[in-house]
Simulated scan of single mutants.
Amino acid sequence: MKRIALFPGSFDPFTKGHEDIVLRGLHLFDEIIVGIGHNTAKKRYFPVEVMQRMIEETFEKYPQIQTVTYDDLTANMARQLGARFLLRGLRNTTDFEYENSISQVNRHVYSDVETVFLITSPHLAPISSTIIRELHKYGHNVDEFLPYKLSELTISA
């Protein structure tokens, strides 16, 4: 049976830390689906369509990585995609506390799903989408934190 993992997130934006988790996840899974989910608690900074294209371009040399968007519970999307694993990255203990609760709920919704946590590589741990958005909003170049260039991207107001 193919080991398919869904790597869910709002990815606003998708960072080198996210890229690292996906590439390392290829050692564990046959296929990884990067799922850009709609988070009702967040207003997007970068358009979903633009971020999906940037992620697809980042992994264009990896046929075992695909990208989808969804507006549903992550566990429901995993079931729909045939993914038995959720891949998540952890930068610190705060991430663990948050992700642990979510993993329990996902398991309640879809009992066959397992969440697999990978610890973020140390040199990428300080990177967060929130910090990158803030730096970008105030005109700082953030390209060193991203696997693509933001220079041509427009933000959603």
Rank of each mutant, 00 (worst) to 15 (best):
F7H: 05
V109D: 02
T93Q: 15
A75R: 11
E152Y: 12
D95Q: 11
I33Y: 03
I102E: 08
E57G: 01
T154Y: 03
N106Y: 07
L23P: 00
D72Y: 10
G37L: 10
A83I: 08
T120A: 15
Q104L: 15
G89Q: 05
E49Q: 10
S10K: 12
G89W: 08
V50A: 14
I119D: 00
H18F: 10
K137G: 08
R3E: 11
E60A: 09
L135D: 02
L153P: 05
R88Y: 08
R3P: 00
K16Q: 14
F117K: 01
T58L: 10
I132N: 01
H108G: 04
E114K: 09
I21M: 05
L86C: 04
G82Q: 08
N92K: 05
M77Q: 13
Y148S: 03
G25D: 03
I55F: 04
G9D: 03
A125W: 00
T58H: 06
P126H: 05
M51L: 13
H38A: 06
I33H: 03
A157K: 14
R107Y: 11
S103E: 05
P122I: 12
V116K: 11
K2N: 14
I131P: 00
N100S: 12
E152P: 04
Y110L: 11
T93W: 14
Y138I: 04
R79V: 13
S151W: 13
D71A: 13
A125C: 05
D72V: 01
V34D: 09
A5S: 07
N141S: 12
L118I: 11
V105Y: 11
V142W: 02
S10W: 03
K149C: 13
G17H: 07
L23N: 02
R88W: 07
G25R: 07
E152T: 14
E57D: 14
K149N: 14
Q66W: 06
D112S: 15
K149E: 15
Q80P: 00
L23F: 02
L135F: 08
R53I: 05
N39D: 12
L6R: 12
F96I: 09
A83E: 09
V142R: 03
H136S: 01
N106C: 08
S151T: 14
I131A: 14
R88A: 08
E60D: 09
E49R: 04
Q104F: 14
